[in-house]
């Protein structure tokens, strides 16, 4: 347990000691607000809710989460510090977990910094704060899922840019599974239950109830298992590097 905390601290300090994390935060905050207010036409909706804000989260995360997680392992592999890390008396899973949690914290901080929009809807009208809370909760979980994917992709290469591109690609595959265009295509070949299953693998579908203000137990399982599965993959890839 000490190991995971140590790695977490080191990684988190690493984020905030260079300007990179701030640049990402800045772009994310600008994107989240810009999408909600301009593309989402926040004022035109006339409603004091955050629907136009949450609607763009899956797509924002698709780019932003790979950006903050791309360096997690690629940096160590490329810079040759992985060997050093592995000589520490820390199990691999603790390193994987600590790094993941650090990146997730950055994502959480990014979401927390969108608080002005929560104040805004409460000033403008009578907002449903229970529903907004669940929306944020779902958003945080979804961010964890995307980071776990990006973490695994980062462990496959020593190049951050390649890690980023791979992570965006895999995240896109997952996200797109819930898009009508994909569903329509596969529905002509596969049985209905399987199509529903495939669409259910997409964060788009799983984020839906949270956006409405409902916590679904199976969505919690989905995000939890998504994170666990991709961290297991990360663990396997890092272990392989250590040995190879």
């Amino acid at each position: 347990m000490d190991g995971i905390v140590a790695i977490y601290r080191r990684e988190l300090a690493g984020y905030f000691s260079t300007p990179t994390a701030y640049v990402f935060l800045s772009i994310f905050l600008f994107g989240a607000g810009g999408f909600a207010f301009h593309l989402g036409r926040f004022f035109d909706s006339g409603q004091a809710d955050l629907a136009p804000f949450f609607a763009f989260h899956p797509w924002l995360f698709l780019i932003f989460m790979p950006a903050i997680a791309m360096k997690l392992w690629a940096d160590e592999v490329g810079g040759g510090s992985l060997e050093l890390l592995m000589t520490l008396p820390i199990p691999t899973w603790a390193a994987v977990g600590g790094k993941f949690l650090a990146a997730w914290t950055v994502a959480g901080a990014a979401l927390a910094l969108t608080f002005p929009i929560w104040i805004t809807v409460n000033v403008l009208g009578d907002a449903d704060n229970g529903a907004i809370f669940v929306g944020y909760l779902g958003s945080v979980l979804m961010a964890g899922g995307y980071i776990a994917i990006a973490s695994a992709m980062s462990a496959t290469t020593g190049n951050q840019v390649i890690a980023f591109v791979l992570a965006v690609f895999v995240s896109f595959l997952f996200t797109a599974a819930g898009m009508p265009i994909v569903v329509e295509t596969v529905s002509s070949i596969l049985p209905a239950a399987l199509v529903e299953g495939i669409a259910g693998l997409s964060p788009l579908e799983r984020f839906e109830s949270a956006r409405r203000g409902v916590v679904e137990a199976r969505d919690l399982v989905y995000f939890g298992s998504l994170i666990a599965a991709w961290l297991a993959v990360t663990n396997a890839l890092v272990t392989a590097r250590r040995g190879g």
Binding site: Y22, H38, T114
Partner: peptide
């Protein structure tokens, strides 16, 4: 719109420059 789109983004960027 300024508060939500620009303010926090600028603050974060400012923190980056400071770092």
């Amino acid at each position: 719109t300024f508060l939500n789109v620009w303010l926090m983004a600028l603050l974060a960027a400012g923190a980056g420059v400071w770092t």
